[in-house]
Write a protein that binds this DNA or RNA. Structure first.
Lengths: 237, 237
DNA sequence: TTCAATACCTGAATT
DNA sequence: TAATTCAGGTATTGA
């Protein structure tokens, strides 16, 4: 599958997204689908050398009503700063969009958790139990973090359409031109603060077209969600 | 039935546990089986003059998954301090072991409840619906509370063994020597903070022997549970 | 008022 | 066997 990315950057010939090797293609995608967004004064995310920290296969609770991600203690203590009152961590997704999560320690359960902001990411990325989130960090800049995800292989193909049940499936045509919906977009601003509800920059796997969120992950081939809602979230936290 | 209490204290001849008169032997047991544990700077519990406050026959909810005891409003407002954020009440059982319960007012249901810590007590005392808990307080010291319980007369004799279904019934032999499992125990420390999972000091009715919690209440005569777990709980809240 | 979000708490599993 | 971890709850708050 080849996607012509109409972004400001030059699309190199090597930018074919590997459909196989789901296991370890996260870096690859990050580098390949990099955009030239700059923010935080750092380097463009597509040239940022990064170090993988850990993955987590999401549990039902991680994606459910509890609105929190339990961060396995070993990783939390190894990679993240001590969680204090109001600690907030910022993670850039594949497209450089920042996602801010409150990071806390719950003494009662002795767990480290991402709370505020997490559920937005879950919804935006349509994460489900069994999917994997992957955390990495800039090799050169302490405290610069990245987040990525992959949907699990055997996930149901059913798309949740919410109330607008009459949504069409959107066959993913080869060569569909990706508009600048995310990135230095024309019609939709990329948030400088919290992420936009419309979805994290999903490499070449997910984008917005004519009011539809279109997903074209490697295993799902192509799918469209009727969710036309675009919820802007102020970066309150 | 005579039980030789191998505690540090002198066992007086009057320490025969009455097997009859289940109804009103709570105080008696308290006095009879008193240990000389001292804590909280108060007097030894076996000589503490006390005033009965109220009893409650436990409902299924009081002993179920809700992990809370509804305290009848009239008694709550009469006997307990106003429930504020994080209010915690401490109740000593027959043996002077303190049990700390969070005490709250739930505006939604307009009820006073004991929450955190309550389920531990329920398990330890093997309370079931229909059993009665009895609350009293020190006559001379405001804010010093005591808790006791009695199993209901017509309770099922079935013992819940959890997964370890092969637990033997433990015929209560007359003269079984009570080890110092609770109290100023040799092998098991009595917690200064929250109660030990192994059970409230149940007069001469319940003790730990060779890894079994042995119960010898008047009506159940004798029973053993295979629950060998001893859970230490930090008094964090 | 309803609902979502958060901050707790707990039991079971695991080490 | 004791201690830790964490998935899954509930209560309360806030929008």
């Amino acid at each position: 599958m080849y996607m012509d990315l109409s972004l400001g950057t030059t699309v190199e010939d090597t930018q074919e997204v590997q459909e196989e090797e789901q296991e370890d293609d996260l870096y690859q995608q990050q580098v390949l689908i990099g955009q030239d967004l700059q923010h935080g004064g750092g380097e463009p995310s597509h040239v940022m050398a990064r170090e993988h920290m850990f993955d987590k296969v999401l549990t039902p609770s991680d994606v459910g009503k509890l609105n929190r991600l339990v961060v396995p203690k070993q990783h939390a203590e190894r990679f993240f700063p001590a969680a204090g009152a109001g600690t907030q961590l910022c993670f850039e997704d594949r497209g450089g969009v920042p996602w801010r999560f409150r990071y806390s320690y719950w003494g009662s359960s002795q767990s480290y958790v991402m709370t505020k902001g997490w559920s937005r990411f879950v919804r935006a990325a349509r994460l489900a139990a069994g999917d994997t989130v992957s955390f990495s960090r800039a090799a050169a800049a302490a405290g610069r973090y990245f987040i990525d995800y992959r949907h699990c292989q055997h996930r149901s193909r059913d798309i949740s359409f919410g109330d607008a049940a009459a949504a069409p499936a959107w066959p993913m045509a080869v060569g569909v031109q990706r508009t600048a919906a995310w990135g230095k977009g024309a019609t939709m601003a990329v948030p400088a603060g919290d992420g936009v509800e419309a979805g994290p920059t999903g490499g070449a796997r997910s984008f917005r077209l004519f009011g539809f969120n279109v997903e074209c992950s490697g295993d799902d081939a192509a799918a469209a969600s009727a969710s036309a809602e675009v919820e802007y979230v102020d970066g309150d936290s």
